[in-house]
């Protein structure tokens, strides 16, 4: 088994309470399914949508992230899967696609001596 990071991008701030609740129920069901199948290495964290970005030799501090709202990483999860293809298949069940979001699937590099 290998490890993969799922980076979730995109959120819908205009949904109605009912739609939000439905979205949440879908997320819970998806995470539960992944957990039941043993794919979750670490459930991860949501990330605040505001913060600071420090750049360059001058270490300039900006309000960030710069990206458009839809491109801001909203959270991450660590997944265990057979290979990249398997991890991609797993990601396809993510409810973030319902709101036009994305999942970035990145293999975690294995460090060997």
């Amino acid at each position: 088994m290998s490890e993969f990071t799922f980076l979730f991008r995109g959120r819908d701030t205009t949904a109605s309470p009912e739609q939000m609740q439905k979205a949440m129920q879908k997320w819970m069901a998806w995470f539960k399914e992944l957990g039941d199948k043993g794919y979750i290495k670490y459930p991860g964290h949501p990330l605040e949508h505001s913060g600071k970005v420090v750049t360059g030799r001058q270490k300039t501090v900006h309000d960030g992230p710069y990206a458009e709202a839809k491109d801001v990483v909203g959270g991450f999860t660590l997944i265990e899967a057979k290979d990249l293809q398997h991890a991609v298949e797993i990601s396809k069940g993510c409810p973030i696609f319902d709101i036009g979001g994305s999942v970035e699937v990145r293999p975690v590099q294995r460090l060997s001596m």
Partner: peptide, 9 residues
Amino acid sequence: CRALEVWKF
């Protein structure tokens, strides 16, 4: 929005 983000994790 916060509930959705925190609760799903």
